[in-house]
């Protein structure tokens, strides 16, 4: 499974960077979202992967028997997903506002010169 994840993460990073290097603000944001997903997956993988065993304490038990997925990385990533969304929402609003002000969706129209 780790091989597949490595491939997926690599592809998401590559695709994200490629999109960020384009000239349009919207593509920049799509790329940003992709790289965000890639980073989350990378952190997730680095804590070790366990198939379909969520960190849930079964009824009647006091603790969960290994192996189970690391709950701490999950908590971290959960925070990261939400923050990533907040950033994206703000960036989208900013893009819209910028377009209204500059009259273009192109990144290079915003540099002085």
């Amino acid at each position: 499974m780790v091989w597949l994840l490595a491939l997926a993460i690599g592809a998401l990073y590559a695709g994200g960077l490629y999109m960020m290097l384009r000239k349009t603000m919207v593509k920049l944001l799509i790329g940003l979202a992709m790289i965000g997903n890639a980073a989350n997956l990378l952190i997730f993988t680095s804590s070790g992967i366990v198939r379909s065993k969520a960190p849930l304490v079964p009824k009647g038990a006091k603790t969960v028997e290994p192996p189970f997925a690391d709950p701490l990385t999950q908590a971290l990533i959960l925070t990261a997903i939400v923050i990533g969304f907040a950033v994206l929402a703000f960036a989208l609003a900013l893009v819209r506002r910028t377009y209204e002000a500059v009259g273009s969706g192109g990144l290079e129209d915003m540099t002085e010169e």
Binding site: V2, W3, L5, A6, L7, I9, G10, A11, L12, Y13, A14, G15, L17, Y18, L21, A38, L42, T45, S46, S47, G48, I49, D70, P71, L72, T73
Partner: peptide
């Protein structure tokens, strides 16, 4: 982008086999 993606994939493989100490979780 491809080089970057390949590097990150490689990093993923390397990172997944590294274990330092006990996880705090």
């Amino acid at each position: 982008a491809t080089v970057f993606g390949a590097a990150m994939g490689f990093l993923c493989l390397v990172a997944s086999e590294q274990r330092y100490g006990e996880p705090v979780s």
